[in-house]
Design a protein around this nucleic acid. Structure first.
Lengths: 335, 335
DNA sequence: GTCGAAGATTGAATCGTTTTATTGCGACGG
DNA sequence: CCGTCGCAATAAAACGATTCAATCTTCGAC
């Protein structure tokens, strides 16, 4: 297994190693004929450049690090996908890690990334930025926080406006003529949930005749949605809401199933329903469920853009990009 | 942004750079007192070793490459998770890429991995092994194929026995006393689907009184399952199967929904239903759906194990590990 | 025919760590 | 009391690509 390096290529092509490097990195600096010869040699020897040596010289690698909270969550995989693709356009690769919300796992990824001298770090943080992030910055590795606004605004961030999302959802329900609205979600300690509720109540209070009932669940799951949905379905018709805004699509799907099983409430005729996240299942439910879509891929792309900007040392000031979620209207909310 | 290297650490600790390296890599070779001094210096300076330089010297990196077909597929994310965790135990990190079934994307990842001089490659291949894999091997980088048995048995592989899975599913239905069984799945050009059907028909033919009807769908989606399910629900009761084996859980969920809406067939009383993959939704459906679970995480772990074995140069012969899928019985198939 | 400028090519220095041969040193046995 | 053995620590040589300053071509202009 003889190791093939620029040296061997140079020898075969009858040029110096410097020229080989030029062919690889500044093709314009080299004559077409020699370039061809060198390429032929590369091909013939099956030369693959050693990235370690390259980045040792360059000082930093052609990779960026990305830490997400959960691999199983479509939101984060969408984010990763967007980041991945944008990075590839700039010839960067993405090292993906997931922290499972664990601070120590996040920390070990950050250490790894620093050892690798990554170009920059995209982080969906499990906690407030700690000393590790500061050190990254001190070492010239920029970081961009995704999906979480930090109280520490000195790090750039890319996030989505959940308050606005909540307001949009309820606004849509109001526009359909609904007035007795129920918010189903919880636990309220999750910031995303409380933000969505916040937006919902804002929108509701803008319409004098509207009321907002808050029904909390212990987890954002189909089962919980179904449980609460059943309770609502069995209420006296006069006491039932005429619209439900669920804190995510799983809960919405549970509510929908409960209504279908109980059969007392027809969706969308008697009750409008809207969820949040626009997961694939929402659109393929028995009654396609309206939802609020977060531009996941776009967020990933933008995060990379911001990162590159910081890496180029351009703007010293941190940027905070906030995306507006998008209303996706389907059958469940239209009458 | 002064760059901190072993040199600076050595200077501060009053030792040579060689000693610093020893402290880091062979702590036993060094006196406790000096080790303490060096560690103090490292701490004080915030030294992080440069992995590029390290691996330049070492010849290969502390990472393995993993290419999966699809980020959104829980099977692959489970696989990635298992691989990730097993690799971390050995101090290796995983570079994750996804090919979207595109050969050229797969190829570009393999090139990247080779530039990075990864320890090894785990590949869920989009096509038959090509020259790139051969070259990897020629360069001393082992590769393990996951989830796809290759006709080229010279590469090690870790896969799951879909034929057996199909047989298990139908065997379970037969054990429940069902005889008129329908297989719903497609397109049959997908090997996984045809394997499952193959196993299903094997199991069915072992029971003389059993019949197996094959209903093909154009895609493994909820919508397709629902469409076909509706047709079946509307058949004359005598012409209806008494059990359905869906090629994956999405289709099974669609079938379930159709039965619930049409109301003509009760699951599980009048018809047993079983899916495949055991995605999270299967267990939380209105009627929890039985399924065939593939040991995703275990496959990932095992793939890494096999890889490490090959990397250590031990066994020259390729290994082929085949996992047996597991039957998960829930309400939808029990009467 | 010579000179100069522009462009192509070269070669040595460099990145930061690991490794190996070597030195220094104290202790122990003869 | 000297030689030797063992252990710590050191210094210098890798690893392989990139990058300049320096050298060499080529070619047009005078």
């Amino acid at each position: 297994m003889a190791t093939i390096g620029v040296k061997e290529v140079a020898a075969l092509a009858g040029v110096s190693i410097g020229t080989v490097s030029n062919v690889l990195n500044r093709p314009d600096k080299v004559t077409e004929a020699t370039a061809a010869r060198v390429h032929a040699a590369i091909e013939q020897l099956g030369f693959i450049r050693n990235d370690a040596a390259r980045q040792l010289r360059a000082g930093s690698s052609r990779a960026i690090g990305l830490v997400i909270l959960d691999v199983a969550n479509p939101f984060f995989t969408g984010l990763a996908r967007g980041a991945q693709e944008r990075a590839a356009e700039s010839g960067l690769s993405v090292i993906l890690g997931y922290s499972d919300e664990k601070v120590e796992r996040e920390a070990s990824y950050l250490d790894l990334f620093e050892e690798q001298r990554v170009h920059g770090v995209l982080l969906s943080p499990a906690a407030e930025p700690g000393p590790r992030l500061e050190r990254l910055r001190a070492h010239g590795i920029p970081a961009v926080l995704v999906d979480r606004l930090s109280t520490d605004t000195s790090f750039s961030s890319v996030s989505v406006d959940d308050i606005r999302g909540g307001a949009t959802a309820v606004g849509h329900l109001l526009a359909q003529g609904r007035r007795r609205i129920a918010f189903i979600g919880g636990p309220l300690t999750i910031r995303q949930v409380s933000d969505r509720l916040h937006g919902a109540s804002e929108a509701a209070s803008a319409e004098p005749r509207a009321s907002l009932e808050v029904v909390t669940v212990s987890a954002l799951t189909v089962a919980e949605g179904r449980r609460v949905g059943r309770q609502i379905a069995r209420r006296d018709p006069a006491a039932r809401p005429d619209a439900v805004f669920a804190a995510n699509d799983l809960v919405a799907l549970g509510v929908l199933e409960a209504m279908l099983i109980e059969g007392t409430v027809k969706i969308p005729e008697q009750m409008s329903l809207i969820g949040y996240d626009d997961i694939g299942f929402a659109g393929s439910a028995m009654v396609p469920v309206s939802s609020i879509r977060q531009p996941m891929a776009l967020m990933g792309q933008t995060a990379v853009d911001v990162l590159m900007e910081e890496a180029s040392g351009a703007g010293r000031a941190a940027q905070h990009v906030v995306f507006q979620p998008e209303l996706v209207v389907r059958e469940s909310s239209q009458r």
